[in-house]
């Protein structure tokens, strides 16, 4: 804040920065995680953070449908797909 303005912490700015940072970090985690189920956790975090961003844009309905469809259905279907195609429960011991 230049020119002697009073420094105020803007809550909206703070929340926006937090949400966008968590969206980006979880999106990076999706491609960086070693375990594929961890990627799915990152994906769910990313979806929820995007839903919260929609709420900040006062599009509540889109946010709710985002959670209902993406976290409630798409992520679970992805998890089903991952788990049903593995022969062992976990493969992390092999590394």
């Amino acid at each position: 804040m230049a020119g002697g303005e009073e420094v105020t912490l803007d809550w909206e700015m703070f929340v926006f920065l937090f949400l966008s940072a968590s969206t980006l970090l979880s999106a990076i985690y999706v491609i960086r995680a070693r375990e594929i189920v961890h990627s799915v956790v990152g994906l769910a975090t990313c979806f929820i953070a995007i839903a919260a961003l929609y709420i900040m844009l006062s599009a509540e309905f889109v946010a709710i449908v985002q959670i209902l469809v993406y976290v409630g259905a798409v992520v679970v279907v992805i998890l089903f797909g991952i788990m049903l195609t593995r022969r062992e429960i976990m493969e992390s011991e092999k590394r």
């Binding site: 189920v37 959670i67 976290v71 409630g72 679970v76 998890l79 089903f80 976990m90």
Partner: peptide, 17 residues
């Protein structure tokens, strides 16, 4: 209902982990 729908994800995660 959307909050209700998050639970299967965590349950599947708990069962797998």
């Amino acid at each position: 209902l959307a909050a209700f729908a998050i639970a299967p994800f965590s349950i599947l995660l708990a069962g797998w982990a």
